[in-house]
Computed example of a mutant assay.
Amino acid sequence: MKSKLAILMAFLLLLQLTSCNSNKKANENTLLVIDRLGREIHVPKKVDRVVGLGPGSLRTLLYMDALALIVGVEQNEGRDMTRPYNLANPEISELPRIGPQHGGEAELILRVRPDVIFLSFTTMANADALQAKTGVPVVVIETPEMAVEQDELFDTLKLVGRIINKNERANALISYIKTNIEELEERTRNITSKPKVYIGGVSYQGARGFYSTQINYPPFIFANAKNVASEDNNSSEVKGVSIDKEKLLIWNPDFVFVDESGINLVKEDYNSNPTLFHSLNAVKKDQLFCTFGYNNYSTNYEMVLANSWYIAKTIYPDAFKDITIREKLNEILTTFLGRNISLDAFKHSFNKLDKSNL
């Protein structure tokens, strides 16, 4: 009996030692991270192959200078040429497809053998399920609104940087964003006479018309602009909202900006009620401009900054005499995406709109 007990104890001790050695080896080869949902995940210390699933995930990897690590993309990626990161990285159109947008397909993901899967706009249950199906660490990231959720954005950049060994890149990008916002604030802080501004055609869950706006429109916040929609509503809402037509007549903005993503619907709104448009001071005084539609499969952050500089220079020309929008746009695109993009791709954006062509 004692002999059997001794053998059993020895066997259990051997199992414990084996487990300890296995855990030690795992700890030597993996990194414990906490993703944006608070999940603890062990990822390889050396990551050579990644995929980004969900709105903004691939874009985040490209911001982080990780093109060489990306081994597959969702069906829609690389084909929508209204997204600057697609224009700057034509190589991604040649990568294997790993399923539809908003999460891909487990079987197709496995075929490209990623070391880590980055996933956005998901739940803990869905992330755990994908990890169980693939056996690949799934790290949930955030691609939040830029003006009031900056910390969340910066935390995502740091998290991705830690996993793919791009800490310096994360810090450089965060510093660049902060510097731009601080300079815009410095240039506009003491301007006392601020014209009233309105942004129409703001997209959310698809293109929208002229009466779609944003109470907390980040470029207006960064440019210290007097947004008529927020003057009338102090909500913290960050998504687009629809307003009553009569509101515009009451607000009567001095400058009107149109989000290019909604420009065709704005034209339809104009044709259905041209009298309203021509009653606005901005239209009467030919102060109608077009901004880039940056809400496209989540936020194109570089274009938020580009719009901010364009709007600031438009409404406060004296404070931005030394700024050339073309040069500033080139700088921003190169910093975020590593490459410049032909401005011909932006069509109406960063230009004055001819009201006669609406």
Rank of each mutant, 00 (worst) to 15 (best):
T134S: 02
E186Q: 05
L159C: 12
I163N: 04
G161P: 10
T134A: 03
E142A: 09
V139E: 06
E183L: 10
Q150Y: 09
A132Q: 05
I163Y: 01
K166Q: 15
D151G: 13
E145I: 00
E185G: 03
E183N: 02
A147K: 06
K178G: 01
N180V: 03
R169M: 12
I163E: 04
E168I: 10
T156S: 12
K178M: 04
R162T: 15
K133A: 12
N180I: 06
A172Q: 14
E145L: 05
V136S: 01
N165R: 14
K158G: 08
I164H: 06
K166R: 15
D155G: 13
A132C: 01
N171E: 15
F154S: 11
E168T: 14
N171S: 15
I164T: 03
V160G: 10
A147C: 05
V148L: 13
A172V: 10
I181W: 00
K158C: 00
F154K: 05
N167S: 14
E185S: 06
V140G: 05
Y176S: 03
L157V: 12
E183M: 07
E182L: 09
N167E: 15
A170G: 06
A170L: 11
V140S: 07
R169P: 13
G135K: 01
A147N: 07
V140Y: 04
A172F: 04
G161H: 09
E168H: 13
P144W: 06
V136E: 01
I174P: 07
P137I: 00
L153V: 10
I163Q: 06
K178R: 14
D151C: 00
D155R: 14
K158Y: 08
D151F: 00
T134W: 02
V138P: 01
F154L: 11
Y176A: 04
L153F: 14
K178T: 05
V148E: 09
T179M: 06
V136R: 03
L173G: 02
Q150M: 12
A170N: 10
F154P: 01
K133S: 13
A170E: 04
P144Y: 07
R162A: 14
N165C: 07
V148I: 10
G135A: 03
D155W: 08
V140P: 01
Q150H: 05
N180W: 08
L173Y: 04
R169D: 06
D151R: 08
A172N: 15
L184V: 01
N171M: 15
N180R: 03
E185T: 13
